[in-house]
């Protein structure tokens, strides 16, 4: 198991009122993403626990893409990963952000 913390400055606060959301399941090739609106409006932190070791750069790239695309300011995002591929990770992050935007 490997843990990783990625911190970003976001351009703006993610829209919506939901305090928290969870998406995905911890399974082989899958992951769960827990999103909590607990940080200042321009900050975003991502905590990752993963079974796949040595993919720090991949995680950083996927998270950077996501932050650029959605500007998830205010969110602490926690991930339990069962070895998901980067496209699955990106998909779950996007799904999670959409859930947080719900009224």
């Amino acid at each position: 198991m490997e843990t990783l913390k990625i911190k970003h400055t976001a351009k703006s606060r993610l829209a919506g009122k939901k305090d928290q959301a969870i998406i995905g399941v911890v399974a082989s090739g899958n992951l769960e993403v827990l999103l909590e609106r607990v940080l200042p409006d321009t900050r975003c932190e991502v905590d990752i626990a993963t079974t796949a070791e040595g993919f720090d750069d991949t995680w950083k790239a996927v998270v950077a893409d996501f932050v650029e695309r959605r500007s998830p300011g205010g969110l602490r995002i926690s991930i339990n990963d069962g070895g998901a591929r980067p496209d699955t990770v990106y998909l779950r992050l996007m799904q999670g952000a959409a859930l947080m935007e719900a009224e």
Partner: peptide, 13 residues
């Protein structure tokens, strides 16, 4: 689960 090098789930399933 960490003892077995397995990922946990936030709700333990």
């Amino acid at each position: 689960l960490a003892l077995f090098d397995l990922p946990a789930a936030f709700d333990d399933g």
